[in-house]
């Protein structure tokens, strides 16, 4: 039996939040259900995009990741005789 669309939407919303560091508790589950319910009222083609947009609105803004390397402190390698 194919997965019902509501289950698919709910699963993706919760997974996205969980992987983004949101704690999944009763309140977030309620929010996820609300987004799912609103998405189901959208045209069939737009349900996934609606829910993705809505779930991202609930996320905190992207935090910049600390630099991978320190400021450069350049100097040269010298190549002598063999």
């Amino acid at each position: 039996m194919p997965q019902p669309i509501s289950e698919l939407l709910l699963q993706r919303i919760l997974a996205y939040w969980a992987w983004s560091g949101v704690v999944i508790d009763a309140a977030t589950e309620e929010k996820a259900l609300a987004i799912t319910a609103r998405a189901l009222h959208q045209p069939e083609q737009q349900r996934l995009s609606f829910s993705l947009q809505a779930l991202q609105e609930e996320l905190p803004g992207q935090t910049p990741i600390a630099a991978a390397s320190p400021p450069l402190s350049r100097s040269s390698m010298h190549y002598g005789d063999y």
Partner: peptide, 11 residues
């Protein structure tokens, strides 16, 4: 390692 030294060896 030489690439590292050229960039940050001076520090």
């Amino acid at each position: 390692v030489a690439d590292f030294l050229r960039r940050w060896g001076g520090a």
